[in-house]
Design a protein around this nucleic acid. Structure first.
Lengths: 225, 225
DNA sequence: CGATAGATTTAACCCAGGTTAAATCACTTG
DNA sequence: CAAGTGATTTAACCTGGGTTAAATCTATCG
């Protein structure tokens, strides 16, 4: 049985390799808030367990065994997030921290039961895709709201889930997945964006807009996925 | 923050001291399935943390700080057991193992939410009392079904929760807390007991009956507690 | 009283996971 | 090419939790 820390490393490597082309030890140290030395040691252990490839001059990457574990943990995490909101009334800024602890200890029984309770959901409350038990996950990428040109509209598909404060702010503005948005105007020189959210207008910063991922009306992936 | 293992020691000491008058290291080693040496070391740590009293020739006992933690963990455990059955359809022989892992990681938020979901229950599915957040717990003891004399009847208040196989068997016989039972006949020389459970009769062994705790009709504590 | 048996503690070790400080690697740049 | 800088690794150490084997209590019995 792998410890919770090791699982967190695998999860972090998986997520970083989706976002970053090349994953380095320092990125892991950063993300996991541990010292670089701790990363070195853990990577050596994971390599001996055949969960990552990390030979000299070799790209750091998960083996398929490592990816399988990462996806199981991510599945737990996202199912838990959905469950905590749906069943226990958590708000979407609270679920990440709780799921972070629970994801390492729940049984397959628990996983199956909340999956069924939720009606076998495909996405968590932030719009992140939930891997199947077989490890299949929809990793299509979406453009950000900041990239929408004035006049264009789209549907929010996902928001960045790391910052509770930002999530609460998004919530106050109604910026949830599945919500329709239209870019009305982009003030120049890093200025605010005027956006229509459902029926109201908001002026938001570009940083926030960069953390909101949308599918454009005219996109190739604009159906209900 | 105390590790999960240390919490398990405190919980074990608490439970043993309810049942056993004197708690010894070997009893802990037994119960927790660790070596006696591990117990010695952990007790020294817990003593330094002022969670147990264990001076030379001093009775092993929890300090009030230690008892507080033990009761918190037990509260988590029993709320979780009730929740898993009520909300997720677990059977009563499955909940102990799952609660054992979850009890150490859930937040106070989670605790409060499942408590509310359950309507602030006072007992878990096996009839064990759930401590309040303030650490108050109803530790009244009940006699066993085996002690009921022919002709006497009572209400099941609690069953021993440690053995899933036994719980499933009890379930098949309808031996749940709140169920009415009547002792019809006790076969001599360790023979079976004929018992009426609700409307059906069963012949059960004395070992089983010793793991079922009842309040007699004429007891001092026969009300709905 | 002394022997012996059971309970307990000590000692030495292991593993997972972390730290800091120093050494080394790799890369850009004058 | 040498030097400096940032990334990485090594070394030594810490903590929580566990192990086995040996030493030591302690209590009882002949």
């Amino acid at each position: 049985m792998l410890g919770a820390a090791a699982q967190d490393y695998l999860k972090a490597i998986y997520k970083l390799s989706l976002a970053e082309e090349r994953v380095t030890p320092s990125m892991l140290a950063d993300r996991l808030e541990v010292s670089p030395a701790a990363v070195t040691k853990m990577l050596r252990r994971l390599q001996e367990l055949k969960l990552v490839n990390y030979g000299r001059s070799q790209e750091l990457a998960l083996t398929s065994a490592g990816e399988k574990i990462a996806l199981e943990v991510i599945r737990h995490h996202r199912l838990l997030e959905a469950y905590l909101m749906e069943a226990l009334g958590y708000t979407w800024d609270q679920v990440d921290a709780e799921a972070e602890k629970l994801e390492h200890v729940i049984s397959e029984e628990f996983e199956d039961r909340i999956d069924e309770f939720l009606g076998f959901p495909t996405h968590d409350p932030h719009g992140d895709p939930i891997p199947t038990k077989e490890g299949v996950v929809d990793n299509r990428r979406h453009g950000t709201l900041a990239e929408l040109e004035p006049g264009q509209s789209g549907v929010i598909r996902r928001v960045t889930d790391g910052d509770p404060e930002m999530l609460r702010y998004m919530g106050r503005l109604g910026l949830y997945p599945s919500t329709q948005v239209e870019m009305l105007h982009k003030e120049p020189f890093g200025g605010p964006l005027r956006v229509r959210v459902s029926d109201t207008e908001h002026a938001i910063g570009r940083e926030l807009a960069g953390n909101i991922f949308v599918s454009r009306k005219d996109d190739e992936c604009n159906g209900e996925s």
